[in-house]
Design a protein around this nucleic acid. Structure first.
Lengths: 254, 254
DNA sequence: TTCCCTTAAGTTGTATACAGCGAGTATACG
DNA sequence: CGTATACTCGCTGTATACAACTTAAGGGAA
């Protein structure tokens, strides 16, 4: 009786190109958590999720294990998982961590050198970001978010170390650690323009430092760059109106 | 027919205190990989592992997913996993990463301050390590490894940031990133004594820096401390006789 | 002989059955 | 009326069944 995720045994539609049940479960549960539909501390029952998402327990269970690794969900000693709750300090630490890792990536890139082609791509991205930031009141945030994301992704690969890239990818999944985490909400804030201009200046400085093989400088700027996000976080926490604007902000309690 | 992990349905002995099948699978597969019993690039079939470890596919599958996260095993796009192979550079990067994270932990600990009780524990560990290192030719490596591990574990918590501690715990699971990774082999090397003395001096310096609230210094020393491991790695790679002495060294190819 | 296509075996992804453990509840006793 | 105890329901951990997919092998044609 339990499960209602019933589906005729041999008639399963089968995954339609990359839409595996596991992935659906992962995205579904993430969405459930970040949308605030299930609050912090709430237990995530496998059977309930199974019924709600129309997926059997097996992929649900895999997704929960993954989300546990990502830090979105917390394992209960006696079994099962609850939605994790984050303090403001947790988020600050995650940002600090991202900064530290991006710093290491930037430094190693500078020290070991980067192929010219890669640097060329970086410069292209810088130019595009310049263009987006240039014209006040007409800034397209969707484009900014996309380019900014690409810039950081590329930065993460510049060290040439797959290990470091992997770890950065992990840290970016921590709630609000990603560079773009707050930008959607920032769009409504007056301070946004200054923030973007400063960020872009730092982007340029990081690339320049890497080009000049100035490892220490590259690292220092990358770290400071991440701290921008922290400043934004503080501003945002103050402005309680934004709680519903930023997905997942409801996870922060304390 | 396939599976031979057969076991009477209702007669399962049930886990004997914490020995869940999942844990057994995790440890079993790790052992298989690190012992070199299955070489890099080899595909890990779930049913084969199931039969070999006497565990059903479900916990095996969970363990493989976990090991994928840990970086021990690599997911094949079309499904399944292979044993990952590491280059010497990969290991160096992992050590660098550990150093960077321990550095951040030490700096934050220094900046935010640490409860006196914690510092007291650190000093106790320092004293014990002193004692172990003091007498040449009679050094008990098992004790050193234990205390050294405790020292680093404690250091990881000193920042007070659970996020950072978690991430450090992850990175430590990367092959050879852990502080104790090479010590067993070092026991047979002549340079070991100097290495341990230097390491211990750094331990003291890190604690001192944290006490003095000298964040930058704490970070710098912690990073350099990690680099000791890298030096040891280089020495060890040269000495091919050690390949069978160090568990998992067979994973390094290139 | 070589290349392609068909086919078969093996492997993974997913669903589900089942048993034990735990949390919460109701009942009985002080 | 409060507390302790027994019980029941639900939950997770694990095993297994089944179908699609992947891959490797074998046979046929150029």
């Amino acid at each position: 009786m339990a499960t209602s995720a019933r589906r005729e045994r041999g008639t399963s539609p089968r995954r339609e190109r990359g839409t595996s049940q596991s992935l659906k479960a992962l995205l579904g549960i993430r969405e459930l958590v970040f949308s605030g539909e299930v609050g912090p501390g709430v237990r995530l029952s496998e059977v309930t999720l199974s019924g709600r998402l129309g997926i059997s327990r097996t992929p649900i269970r895999a997704a929960l294990a993954q989300l546990d690794q990502e830090g979105v969900v917390e394992a209960i000693p006696s079994g099962g998982y609850t939605v994790r709750s984050f303090t403001q300090v947790d988020v600050a630490d995650a940002i600090e961590l991202r900064g530290a890792l991006e710093g290491v990536a930037a430094r190693i890139a500078a020290e070991r050198g980067v192929p010219a082609a890669r640097l060329q791509t970086m410069h292209s991205l810088l130019a595009e970001l310049d263009h987006v930031v240039a014209d006040p009141k007409r800034t397209d945030f969707a484009v900014y978010i996309a380019r900014n994301g690409e810039f950081h992704d590329l930065l993460h690969t510049l060290s040439g170390s797959e290990t470091i890239r992997r770890e950065l990818e992990r840290v970016m999944r921590l709630p609000f650690a990603a560079p773009n985490a707050f930008i959607t909400a920032q769009a409504e804030m007056p301070e946004i323009r200054v923030s973007l201009l400063v960020a872009q200046a730092q982007h340029r400085a990081i690339v320049n430092a890497i080009e000049m093989r100035e490892g220490a400088r590259a690292e220092a700027i990358a770290r400071e760059h991440a701290r921008l996000a922290r400043t934004n976080l503080d501003v945002m926490i103050e402005d309680t109106k934004l709680i519903n604007k930023v997905p997942g902000l409801s996870l922060i309690s304390g």
